[in-house]
Simulated assay, not measured.
Amino acid sequence: MLRKIDSNYMGSSNHGWLRSKFHFSFAEYYNPANIQFGVLRVINDDLINPQTGFGTHPHKDMEIISYVVDGELTHGDNMGNQNTISRGQVQYMSAGTGVQHSEYNLGEDTSRFLQIWILPDKYGHTPAYGDFRFNWDDRKDNWLHMVSGLDGDAPIKINQDANIYSLELQPGKEISFPVSEGRQAYLVQIEGTSVINGLELSDRDGLEVVEEDMTILAEKTSHILLIEMKKAN
C-alpha cells in the first residue's frame, strides 16, 4: 500500500521567523485522523530565519532527530552539549526522563531542516545527545543508512526499531527499497521530483508505504529521506 501526502494539503504555520509544514498533527495543526504513522509521531519541515530559533524548552520520552537541508542549525542543552551542523548532517537527542534544549540558526542564510520525533520503545531512558557529519557523496545514488535501532549498524542509534536513510538520486537514475512484511516506511521528497511505483512526488511531498517494495525513478535530482519501521498493530 502506498499513499501520497501532497504538501499543499499538509498543516502549516507562519510565525515570520519560522515557517513550517507539518506532516502530522502538531502545534496549531490538529487532525485526529493524522496523529502519527506507526512510531513516527512528528515530521516538521521548518524554515528558520537567520539569527533566530527555538529558545530553551523541555522534552521528555521522545527520540528526536534533526536533519539539515540548507543552512545550519546550532543545538544547545542542559547536558552541556553545543554543536552546529549543516546540509546533510544530523543531530540526535533521546529526551528520556527529561532534557532542556535550544535550536538556533546562527548563520547568515535561512535554515531548512526536518525535525523528526519517534516514540521510544519505553519510557524513562537516560537522556542522551549525539551528532554526525555525514559525507554528502555517500548518499549519491545510494541509500545512506544514518539511524538505526540499538541492534542496527547505523552510526546513530535510537531506542526504537526504526531506520532512517537519505538519498540523492540523479535524473534518470532508478533505485529500489524493500518494505517487507510486518514493516512500513514514510518517505519525504525533500527536493526534486521522482516517480515512485507510478506516483509522482515533488518538493516537500510525503509518501506512506506499508508492506510494499518501492522503485524510485528521479525525474529531477531527488533528495529523499526515508524512515523505515515496524508495522503498527
Rank of each mutant, 00 (worst) to 15 (best):
M1V: 13
K4H: 10
K4E: 03
I5T: 05
I5N: 01
N8Q: 14
Y9M: 06
N14R: 07
H15L: 15
H15I: 07
W17A: 07
W17P: 02
R19I: 12
F26D: 02
E28L: 02
Y29F: 12
Y30T: 08
P32Y: 11
N34C: 03
Q36M: 14
F37S: 01
F37V: 05
R41W: 00
V42N: 03
V42M: 05
I48K: 02
G53P: 04
F54N: 02
G55Y: 03
G55H: 02
G55N: 05
T56M: 07
P58T: 03
D61H: 09
M62W: 09
E63M: 07
S66C: 00
S66G: 01
Y67M: 09
V69W: 08
G71E: 05
L73K: 14
T74S: 10
H75Q: 12
M79D: 06
M79N: 05
G80P: 02
T84S: 04
G88Y: 04
M93H: 13
T97P: 00
G98Q: 06
V99W: 09
H101E: 08
S102M: 13
Y104L: 10
Y104E: 05
N105G: 04
G107R: 11
F113H: 13
L114V: 12
I116W: 01
I116V: 11
P120N: 04
K122Q: 15
H125P: 01
G130L: 05
G130V: 01
F132R: 08
F132S: 02
N135S: 12
D138W: 02
R139F: 06
D141C: 12
H145Q: 06
S148L: 13
G149L: 04
L150W: 04
L150G: 00
L150D: 01
D151T: 14
D151R: 13
D153S: 08
A154P: 04
A154G: 07
Q160C: 05
Q160M: 09
D161R: 07
D161F: 11
A162W: 00
A162H: 01
I164N: 05
Y165V: 08
L167Y: 13
L167H: 13
E168L: 15
L169I: 08
Q170A: 13
Q170I: 11
P171M: 07
G172P: 07
K173A: 08
E174C: 09
S176R: 11
S176Q: 12
P178S: 10
Q184L: 00
Q184W: 03
L187G: 02
L187Q: 09
L187D: 06
L187T: 05
I190P: 03
S194V: 01
S194F: 03
V195A: 04
G198S: 12
L199E: 15
L201N: 09
V209G: 08
E211Q: 15
E211F: 14
T215G: 06
I216F: 04
L217E: 13
E219V: 13
L225N: 10
L226K: 07
K230C: 11
K230H: 10
N233A: 14
N233C: 09
